[in-house]
Each structure stands twice: as structure tokens, then as C-alpha cells.
């Protein structure tokens, strides 16, 4: 039996946030503390019957951005533009560079675990229960709903572009994709207007009504205490 099924979405979300805060505050991580986080999340994933491989793979999505930030980090300490100064800066600051990659990766890994044990609707519901700003929940609801519509429209526009302009130069392609992004924005705005009209016609008054009602119970409290203990453990180790 998967014990995570007995938890409410709000405690799952809160638990993940506590873990993320623990990871961020206790940075930079040693191999031991980072390994402990990975082991814990993996163990939880096994208990929750989550897809560990997919979780790990998806968590890598943060690497390009984190890697780039990490790569630029030592440059602020380069006093003069000589090869020796660059080498010294990178050799001196490799640990913070590593931390800039490891910390966000661990946070994303925790969030990927959350996505494995929660549906999109669960997360939106949890956000409402935790009294996050309504506009944020509304925006995320629409993002979840319309990301596929946007993807479909982008693909259709790209096909239309490619079918009428094969063999374009890279420069021209960049310009056309810029135009495409502009037209997508206008289309999204237009569709937003129509969706708003559809919402109004069904009595929308500014609040997204929901049917669910789940209260936190003893298992939620136990789970939250465990995540707090883990986060405190990371801090104490730090």
C-alpha cells in the first residue's frame, strides 16, 4: 500500500516546500549531504511507487540554466583579463560553482517527486488550501490547461513556416521565429479574451469554485514533522 495516498495534497506540497527550504538554506552541500537528499528522495519514491528514472531524468531540466550561472560565477572575481587570472578564479571558486548546480538540482528533484505523488489538480487544490494568491492559482490552472494548446499552435505555425520557406538561412530563421513568437502572443491574447467570455457566460465572478474539501489529519502531521526533522538535520550538518 502506498502511504502517500493517505496524505492530503496540501501536506504533500507543504512537505516538499519545507524540504526545498532546507536544501536551499543548508547550501552549499557536501557530497554527503547531497547524497543524503538523493537517497531520501529515492527511498520515498520507492515507497510511493514513483518512477525514479523518469524523476531523475526530468530533474536534469535545470542543469542548462544552473550550469550557465555556475560558469559565469567566477568571472566576477577576475581582476584582470589574462588567462592566468581566469584559471585562478575557476580553480578558487569551483566549490561555489558546484553548489550553484547541485542546490537547484536537488530542489527540482524534490519537486519532481512531488509531481509524481500529486496530480496537477492536487497541486492547484493544495495551493488554494494554503491560501496562495488566487491570481497565481488561476494563472497556473490556465498554464496547465493551455500548454498543450499552445504547443499544438506552435507546431502548426512552425510547419506552416517550414513548408513555405525551406532552406532558409539561420539568420532569417531567427527573425521568422521572432515573428512567430509575436504572433503566438497575439493569438494567446485573442484566445484569452474568448476564454474570459466563456467563463463570464457561465457565471464566473472572479473566483474559481472547487468541489473538493480535504482536511489534514494525523498522517499529514507525521509526514510534515518528518520533513521538518530532515530539513533541520541538513541545517545542523551544515
Amino acid at each position: 500500500m502506498n502511504p502517500f495516498n493517505s496524505l492530503t495534497p496540501q501536506s504533500k506540497l507543504l512537505g516538499a516546500v519545507i524540504m526545498v527550504v532546507g536544501i536551499v538554506v543548508s547550501a552549499p552541500h557536501t557530497a554527503f549531504s547531497a547524497g543524503a537528499v538523493v537517497l531520501l528522495v529515492s527511498a520515498l519514491a520507492i515507497i510511493a511507487e514513483a518512477r525514479i528514472g523518469q524523476m531523475l531524468l526530468r530533474s536534469l531540466v535545470v542543469l542548462p540554466v544552473a550550469g550557465m550561472l555556475s560558469l559565469f560565477y567566477p568571472l566576477r572575481f577576475v581582476a584582470e583579463l589574462t588567462p592566468a587570472a581566469f584559471v585562478t578564479a575557476y580553480a578558487t571558486y569551483w566549490q561555489p560553482m558546484l553548489a550553484l548546480i547541485v542546490t537547484p538540482w536537488l530542489c527540482v528533484l524534490v519537486m519532481m517527486f512531488l509531481m509524481e505523488i500529486c496530480t496537477q489538480e492536487d497541486i492547484l487544490y493544495a495551493m488554494e488550501c494554503l491560501h496562495l494568491p488566487h491570481i497565481l492559482v488561476l494563472l497556473l490552472t490556465f498554464m496547465f490547461r493551455y500548454v498543450d494548446v499552445m504547443r499544438y499552435q506552435l507546431r502548426a505555425s512552425r510547419r506552416a513556416l517550414v513548408s513555405r520557406a525551406p532552406g532558409l538561412s539561420a539568420r532569417r530563421q531567427v527573425m521568422l521565429y521572432g515573428n512567430l513568437a509575436g504572433s503566438m502572443l497575439i493569438r494567446a491574447y485573442d484566445q484569452g479574451e474568448r476564454i474570459h467570455a466563456a467563463m463570464l457566460s457561465r457565471g464566473y465572478t472572479g473566483i474559481l469554485p472547487r468541489l473538493r474539501s480535504e482536511r489534514m489529519a494525523v498522517p499529514d502531521a507525521i509526514f510534515l514533522v518528518c520533513t521538518i526533522v530532515f530539513a533541520c538535520g541538513l541545517l545542523l550538518y551544515h
Partner: peptide, 16 residues
Amino acid sequence: DDQLFMTTVHDDIAFG
């Protein structure tokens, strides 16, 4: 796609 804006069919029908 203009009419169905919630994340599940059930929630969309329940909206009104």
C-alpha cells in the same frame, strides 16, 4: 478550446 478551461472534464462541467 475556448470553452473548456479547467484541468479536468469534471471540473469544467462543475464550473457553471
